[in-house]
């Protein structure tokens, strides 16, 4: 502390306009927080779910069994991702405010956009890690089951592999593991990222976590009704003007979450269209940027 007398005379140190390392520090701290809140225990529950589904013999054929494991596990991954995105995002910022941790953070040379980015980044890192782990567990499980089914087929035809056996094996492979499934996990991640950015925006307005969570879940559910809204209501010409206007407003304001459900198609074996995946990546990026900027609009001079 002997050097403090010299700093007394030195001019104010400048602060970079934007510091990625500060964002990183905040993101890692959020990650640590979520880890130490034991959120990753969820992964055990997921593994158990997979084991139960895998050994639950209700399917009529190996193909159906594999298809069910894929659907349930990827469905659970998707559900985990968006639910976690909402709850974690909605809990973390109000908690910082309540605990006054935010005061100490913001009284350091930290820009508010860096804080928001750090929190969002931390949540997304956790979701990314969880999805990767779940994907690997699930890939291992599917491949293991697939190999078992193929071995069964082979041993069921002792006189060499017949046409029929080959056919059955092809069918099993068609419903088994495919590297495209990684993109299905990516799709869930994109959805979760958009949901998290919506939740951040809401939490800059809201005064409580519970309110943020409820409204975010509502927005998420309603965000799946875009196409239905168009098909069922906007098409009806006898609806009155006010309803039409409200629906149009709804379509404009609420994000379209339905189009982020394309993991379902991948899980069911639809062929990937790289151009479309890129477009969705771009759209996800656009959502993140716009919603973060809008959050900043309220957060930048919010008083605590």
């Amino acid at each position: 502390m002997s050097d403090s007398k010299t700093t007394l005379q030195s001019p104010a140190r400048s602060v970079p306009l934007f510091s990625i390392s500060r964002v990183w520090t905040l993101a890692i701290s959020t990650l640590t927080q979520l880890i130490r809140m034991k959120t990753f225990y969820f992964l055990f529950a997921f593994a158990v779910l997979l084991l139960v589904i895998g050994n639950f013999n209700f399917a009529s054929s190996p193909a159906q069994a594999l298809s069910t494991i894929k659907k349930v596990s990827f469905g659970a991954m998707d559900l985990f991702a968006w639910l976690f995105a909402i709850v974690a995002t909605a809990l973390l910022i109000p908690r910082d405010i309540e605990d006054r941790t935010l005061y100490t953070i913001l009284s350091k040379p930290v820009r508010r956009i860096e804080y928001l980015l750090g929190k969002l980044g931390g949540v997304l890192i956790v979701i990314g890690i969880s999805l990767s782990v779940m994907f690997l567990v699930c890939a291992g499980m599917i491949q293991w089951q697939e190999m078992g089914y193929i071995a069964d087929e082979v041993s069921a035809s002792p006189n060499g592999i017949s046409d029929e056996t080959r056919q059955a094996i092809l069918l099993i492979e068609k419903n088994g593991f495919h590297s495209d499934l990684a993109v299905a996990a990516l799709a869930s991640f994109m959805k979760a990222a958009v949901v998290a950015s919506v939740t951040i925006l809401l939490s800059t307005f809201a005064s409580s976590s519970l309110f943020t969570i409820i409204v975010s879940v509502l927005v998420f559910l309603v965000g799946h009704a875009h196409t239905m809204a168009t098909n069922f209501w906007l098409a009806e010409t006898d609806n009155n003007m006010v309803v039409q206007m409200l629906l149009k407003l709804f379509k404009i304001i609420i994000p379209n979450f339905q189009i982020f459900s394309f993991s379902e198609g991948i899980v069911q074996g639809a062929a990937l269209v790289p151009a479309l995946i890129w477009q969705m990546t771009g759209l996800t990026g656009a959502y993140l940027v716009v919603f973060l900027l809008l959050s900043l609009l309220t957060f930048v001079d919010k008083e605590f």
Binding site: L201, G265, A270, V273, L276, A286
Partner: peptide, 30 residues
């Protein structure tokens, strides 16, 4: 914020509808 959301909504709507149709056509989206 509402104005910002509306502008973003108007800008993204045609793109989203286009992408949605393509996703449905390629069976990626149900």
């Amino acid at each position: 914020v509402l104005v910002g959301l509306a502008i973003f909504g108007i800008v993204r709507a045609p793109f989203e509808e286009h992408t949605r149709k393509k996703l449905v056509d390629s069976h990626l989206l149900l």
